[in-house]
Design a protein around this nucleic acid. Sequence first.
DNA 1: ATGGTGGAGCATCCA
Length: 264
Amino acid sequence: MKIASWNVNSIGARKPRILEWFDTAQPDVCVLQEIKCVDEKFPAKDFEERGYNVHVHGQKTYNGVALLSKHPVDDVIRGVPGYEDENSRYIEGVIVPDDAAPVRVGGLYLPNGNPAPGPKYDYKLDWMQAFEAHLSDRLALEEAAIFLGDYNVIPEPEGVYDPKGWADAALFRPETRAAFRRFLNIGYTEALNQLIGEPFYTFWDYQRGAWDKDHGIRIATLLLSPQALDRLDSGGVDRDARDPKKGDDSVKPSDHVPVWVTIC
DNA sequence: ATGGTGGAGCATCCA
């Protein structure tokens, strides 16, 4: 079973490239971030035609997440339980295949937090605290569970092309990385660290020729519960999705790329 | 020091 995540930076602006990637990559489950549309505007039909069940937690202009699955989905929730959030940043459900064991999938778009310090950064840290509490609750269920998405956290210096230049950024500040490490300390494992033996990026800014210079950062992350880790098979980063010259060049690529794992 | 790009939606905000 292939489970993927992609910050698409507007589903409306990106649809041809997104559908092209779905037809090639064929994920069983995919969470999307920054769809930037309300539920009614989400192009559900395009995905239903491809065999997906569609669950959306949309928002006008900013944010917005979706959960797409070729298998039935139970217990869908929108928003981190117990946390009041004016933004649509989280969706979760239990994937129930007929031919494999269930897996809980949570898709998240964690706040960017810039500029730091300030109210936006406080919001990021609050969000991370609430999410940690949720991760902890889910861990106690002892289920196979995967929490994946745009974490807006660069966990290690190897995840940024210029660590010194990024020292004060909300994505890389010590408090941010410490909050992320707590996700690991309570018992989750980063899937792609296990599977990719070298540093990699998942985002390249549109500005300053970042793609051509390979000035990227690593902010897409997949966290696995111990029960999901036992079933981990393979994983990867679809870097080609960021290349303006590859794929449907009638539309611009997202500044983020898809990440994925397969589990048995 | 600034601006460089891109999306939403129509003046700016966000990334």
